[in-house]
């Protein structure tokens, strides 16, 4: 197990290194140059050259990458060109707000989604199965932001139950704070619920068809024992990987959802940076999101290792 964990960690480090290089190179291919952006309309060839020299932009590319990476690793993410403020604190605030959204959504998906899948798998071909599969079709039929729009139309414009945009303040009480979270979180979960419940259903169905379940039933074990103690642990193993994969979709969803609900999180910050071509902000935001995704995958791999006795316990006994 330790060797498995170390290997996964090694892989993640390699991927992160490749990622940082990709992000660095991609942002350098952008038409806008940092120095030109800082100087704006006051730029002359002389001042431009002077500033490029000061910022180290005239160094060879690999050296620039090395300096940039070293600064990043020390937590120095540079200065936002548009906002003219350090990136790190801005990023952290936005990251915290997005993390709340993501964690709430993930918690719901991991519990409700898996439960829906299990129910559908156990009652295959009966009405709970059909209900889940209709829900799944609706969930994946349109992008998340569209459901966000529909929810706003229903809950905010028509019934005026919930705020449609922005973020609550904890000092106004927990209820108010939560009321701002409800719609974005529900919107985020819809698509993922559809995905997770469908895959859990099929993996549950596969386990229930397996030989060891037949054997467990032949031993006269009650059906709930067969489902909960025998089939479920095995059905959960592929679901873990699916959840990690969905975390990537969640990040994509967050970018769109934060725009719909005007929620000041990392996604909106990224869109802002991309639209304004704010290089340091863009690099930091992309790298942070990527790192989070990699870590989520690493976590899933480790969980997978724990859930899977083949990895947890190696060789033969005899």
């Amino acid at each position: 197990m330790a060797s498995y964990a170390l290997r996964r960690l090694g892989t993640v480090l390699v991927i992160l290194a490749v990622m940082s290089l990709l992000v660095f190179l991609a942002t350098h291919a952008l038409p806008a140059s940092t120095a030109a952006m800082i100087l704006g309309q006051y730029s002359t060839p002389e001042t431009l050259a002077a500033l490029e020299h000061k910022l180290g932009l005239d160094l060879p590319l690999w050296l620039q990458y090395w300096n940039w990476l070293r600064a990043m690793l020390h937590g120095d993410m540079g200065q936002s060109l548009v906002m003219e403020r350090p990136v790190a604190p801005m990023l952290w605030d936005a990251f915290g707000r997005s993390a709340i959204l993501a964690l709430c959504a993930m918690a719901i998906v991991a519990t409700v989604g898996v439960a829906m899948g299990v129910v559908a798998g156990v009652w295959r071909g009966r009405w709970p199965d059909h209900a889940v599969s209709i829900f799944a079709y609706l969930g994946i039929a349109v992008p998340e932001f569209y459901w966000g729009l529909v929810l706003i139309l229903v809950f905010c414009s028509t019934f005026h139950l919930l705020p449609s945009s922005g973020i609550g303040n904890l000092s106004d009480g927990v209820g108010s704070y939560v009321s701002y979270l409800i719609l974005p979180v529900i919107t985020l979960t819809l698509t993922l619920l559809a995905h997770v419940s469908r895959l859990t259903r099929s993996s549950m169905a596969e386990q229930l068809d397996s030989m060891y379940v037949k054997v467990a039933r032949a031993r006269g074990l009650p059906e709930h024992v067969v489902i909960v103690r025998h089939a479920l642990p095995n059905a959960m193993v592929p679901t873990i990987t699916v959840l990690a994969q969905d975390f990537g979709f969640l990040i994509g969803g967050i970018v769109a959802i934060e725009t719909v609900f005007a929620y000041p999180g990392l996604g909106r910050l990224l869109i802002f940076a991309l639209q304004r071509q704010d290089l340091p902000l863009m690099q930091a935001a992309i790298l942070t999101l990527t790192a989070v995704f990699c870590l989520a995958n690493l976590g899933a791999d480790l969980l997978y290792g724990i859930a899977n006795p083949r990895i947890r316990h190696g060789g033969a006994v005899e």
Partner: peptide, 19 residues
């Protein structure tokens, strides 16, 4: 392919389109 999959899906597209 693993490395490409390790990017959050939307990130790669946004990067390409932003350039």
């Amino acid at each position: 392919l693993d490395i490409m999959m390790a990017f959050p899906p939307i990130m790669l597209v946004l990067l390409i389109l932003a350039i």
